[in-house]
Amino acid sequence: MALLDVGHLTMHYTTKMGDVHAVDDVSFEIDAGEAIGLVGESGCGKTSVAMSLMKLLPDNARILGGKIVFDGLDLVPLPEDEVRKIRWKGISMVFQAAMNSLNPVYRVGDQIIEAIQQHLPLSIEEARAKVAKLYTLVGMDPKLMDRYPHEYSGGMKQRAVIAMALACDPKMIIADEPTTALDVIVQDRILHRIDEIRKELNMAMMYISHDIAVIAEVSDVIGVMYAGRLVELADTVTIFKRPVHPYTIALMSAFPSIKGEKRPLVHLPGEPPDLLNPPQGCRFHPRCRYATAVCQEQVPQYRELEPGHYVACWNPQRKGGVDARA
């Protein structure tokens, strides 16, 4: 049985202008120790999926349907105090720009200790020992725990935040763009570290990013999101070598790479839709060059094209590879 089983998850934000269809009918599974990458452009709902899994939603957000079964327990109907037990210990999260979330007036180590003591019955000494172990795990000198956040570099703060997320030995960690604000060399170290820790602890991971190159490095399975929907999901090699959804193909063709043949970049005309008022049928059809009449009327079903390769498209492109349009 999968560690996390998300089925037909739908979450909307209520605003004065109407409902924002942030997450619509999203389904996927993660096995223990597996890494799934969620990729998509800004506003596609990838962070909203993560927040729904953690049930850390603002007041105007409503989960309208679906299930989030973690370790055999459905989180959707669960009351807040029950969910709180699962957060940190079960699923833990590294937020976007989390490195700015450290409180500047307390020592970094003390902030982690405080977080640990809220969840585990440990004494100060035990907690300090635990933090020292975590610092070694993320590749930092344990002596640094008695320093203040301003004495840390961006990469060190990010490591500290990852250490905090790992404090209660979670079975799964959600990382939401943890390296976006960092320079490539620091990013490279953090990615390596995350990968090593994950293998060492046999932890499942959901890695969220807009950068398909980063996703390619850290994920076993990749889900591509567009306008609140999961449009394609497959193992990493399949997504890169044989993508079938026109949006996935467009995303791959628009992404520059420093290696390999320098093929012309293809840009996708138009803009992502307004989720207050998403288009009828397939949400990608106004920008899709393969769109047909059915795409404008009916929502394509999210189905298994071949074992492990899911897609929601009326006209999946089987010829594979990247788009050759110039």
Binding site: Q187, D188, A213, V214, A216, E217, T236, V237, F240, I258
Partner: peptide
């Protein structure tokens, strides 16, 4: 710097 840039190719 160049070695650190992720490549969008899982292989």
């Amino acid at each position: 710097l160049i070695a650190a840039v992720p490549v969008p190719d899982p292989t």
